[in-house]
Amino acid sequence: MAKAQTAAAKKLEVSDEIAISITNMNKWYGAFHVLKEIDLTVNRGERIVICGPSGSGKSTLIRCINALEEHQQGSITVDGTLLSSDIKNIDKIRSEVGMVFQHFNLFPHLTILENCTLAPIWVRKIPKKEAEDTAMHFLEKVKIPEQADKYPGQLSGGQQQRVAIARSLCMRPRIMLFDEPTSALDPEMIKEVLDTMISLAEEGMTMLCVTHEMGFARQVANRVIFMDAGQIVEQNEPEAFFNNPQSDRTKLFLSQILGH
């Protein structure tokens, strides 16, 4: 069963078009060197899982991609737009790139529907009716259209995270970033969020996922990146990565995470 799905996922087309290209990127927090010499190219349709011990800089890396964090050296190009301190470029990239956070970060004072329509109305200048239709479409896709008029505080964690995914999708992004989307969830809710992410992958969305869900990585990813101490230590296709890790750090990490 799992094998069959994996195969299905593997069949997804990865085009030659480059979605994200990071060259020689370095970042410091004060004097602390958090990201070292990051080189990464992501093609359109790729599904990349980034894993690594905590503090290895994986969250920082994807937060640099939509300029939530500033990098000091090197270049990041997203969809052909070079990320600079120019506010116009940042706005452009952010409206192309969706992001899902570990702690959902839904707006507690707005209903689920308002959470989903806020950015389309203000950023995309879409009429309210149309924005609501889009929002309902995506809420149906994450299977919670009946919650549209509730407030985030009334939903379970898993439901909130699915709303957060729908909220990002309403901006019709071409790339989705996931920052440990299931880490704050109870075990029984993880599956519903992962299912949502899998169906997203099957539609060909370009995805960068920081996660420790190795089952998800095997099933969906076409590339797994292992980071440690601010650098990319190893990257490979999931089969090779899990079955035949090359670096000692990777082996140690995998034995710890899959060991039990």
């Binding site: 440690d228 650098q231 230590v233 190893e234 490979n236 090779a240 670096s247």
Partner: peptide
Amino acid sequence: SVAFVRKEPL
């Protein structure tokens, strides 16, 4: 080639 391994830590 997707595969990449860093032998020496930076």
